[in-house]
Every structure is written in structure tokens, then in C-alpha cells.
Amino acid sequence: MKLKGWKDLPPATVVPASTAEEVETGQWRSMRPVWDESKCIHCLQCWIQCPDRSIKTDEEGKVTGIDYFYCKGCGICAKVCPKDAIEMRPEADFI
């Protein structure tokens, strides 16, 4: 992303609403949650607790995976899962 100069930047620290959607917080991740569909009972504990709205669900409210664009790798989902269906693994494993 090309950064703006001071003349093109909106004044007063102002930013339009909802710009957080454009920020790839997934870049901050050092540990990656890996979801195991076969163990998941779709209780949605992980969906409720995820601070970054990164647990993806379908129309029926079933977990379909993890959104790595936003997922910061905090590990809360793995911690709260009653079925150990999410495993935290180092990002280095995926290079």
C-alpha cells in the first residue's frame, strides 16, 4: 500500500468508518490456529471468543474454517475449544 503524504491525508486524525476491515492484522501472527473439521462439534465457543471475527461460518452457523487475513494467532479459540479441534502451530511450519 502506497502511503499518503501530509497534504493528501485527511486532517484532524480523521479516518472514515470501518477502515479496520482493510488492515491485514493476520500479518502479526506468529502462531497459526489449525482447525480439524472431524473433531469439531460446531458449538461456536471459538466464534464467540475470537477477538478478530476470524472464525468463518456458513448460513447454518457451522464453522467452515479460519480467516487468516485477520487472525492474529492469539490462541483463544484453541484454548476454549472443548474438543481440542484447534491446534496452535508455529507459522514457521508453513513457510
Binding site: 486524525t13 480523521v14 477502515t19
Partner: peptide
């Protein structure tokens, strides 16, 4: 026309502001 004031601006934008 919703806007947010005072969000985080680190090494990228603080100086310009």
C-alpha cells in the same frame, strides 16, 4: 458520514499528522 478520530498512527502516519 461517519468518521473516527484519533485512531492509531504509528511510524506510518504520526509524522504527517
Amino acid at each position: 458520514n461517519p468518521v473516527a478520530y484519533g485512531s492509531l498512527a504509528l511510524t506510518d502516519y504520526y509524522f504527517e499528522i
